[in-house]
């Protein structure tokens, strides 16, 4: 700083008293500013490189279509499904989907008797390589707190009613393992190709707040 006393309401060179515009184009929250400051310090001190940060961000940039392709493959290929349910990380790697070294992957199957719902109560752990960035509601405090103690109400608000004859099994992913659901294959899809089936698998059905779509969704 110079010894010039920078008072924003003073008279600038251009001759009229004014205030500077209140904000740049994006107003950062305090947490975002803090996170940015930490990031810049880590880079400045050589603890991590900017390249490393970029690489990790890219790893999160999957798309829900990746997960949908995995689900469709499991529906048509029983041997792939077996591998997916026993070693999901290796199985999805066969399809070119890579997870960061420090996270595991577990795929759980929805059945006639059991429906899964995935949550991360502590933060927002999510299989980004298969589902893309997590939706805002998944990261929200209401979802994270209510999914564990009133899962049926939460699913109902998403339009999904699970009969009392099926177990609702909430999965709280608190460690380094990421979870994805293999939903039930919809009835009436027997003749469909793997590519067509993938179109019936919305992101939410792999988190547990929706079912796959009926086959006439894409035949229409």
């Amino acid at each position: 700083m110079s010894d010039h006393d920078h008072d924003h309401s003073h008279d600038h060179q251009h001759g009229h008293p004014h205030r500077h515009p209140p904000a740049p184009d994006i107003e950062l929250s305090d947490r975002a500013k803090r996170s940015l400051a930490i990031q810049e310090l880590l880079v400045e001190k050589g603890i991590i490189g900017q390249d490393e940060i970029r690489r990790r961000v890219e790893e999160q940039r999957g798309s829900p279509m990746n997960g949908a392709k995995v689900v469709a493959r499991a529906w048509v290929d029983p041997e792939f499904k077996e591998r997916l349910l026993t070693d999901a990380r290796a199985a999805v790697a066969e399809m070119g989907f890579e997870f960061p070294d420090d996270t595991g992957l577990v795929v759980l199957e929805n059945t006639e008797d059991r429906h899964h719902l995935i949550v991360c109560t502590l933060c927002s752990c999510y299989p980004g390589a298969l589902l893309g960035p997590p939706p805002d509601w998944y990261k929200s405090l209401p979802y994270r707190s209510r999914a564990v103690n009133e899962p049926r109400s939460v699913m109902s608000e998403f339009g999904l009613e699970i009969g009392e004859e099926r177990e609702v099994r909430v999965v709280d992913s608190t460690a380094e393992l990421r979870y994805m659901i293999l939903p039930k294959r919809p009835a009436g899809t027997e003749g469909m190709s793997e590519e067509e089936l993938a179109e019936l698998v919305p992101r939410d059905s792999m988190i547990g707040v929706a079912e796959p779509m009926p086959p006439d969704t894409i035949r229409a």
Partner: peptide, 27 residues
């Protein structure tokens, strides 16, 4: 790390749902 299973009715006094509902969590 273990995936540990709990009965929902054991975890929450007010749990609304059938006895068969479960919660699993990594510990």
């Amino acid at each position: 790390v273990y995936r540990v299973e709990f009965d929902q009715k054991d975890l929450w006094d007010t749990y609304q749902g059938p006895k068969r509902d479960r919660l699993v969590i990594d510990i």
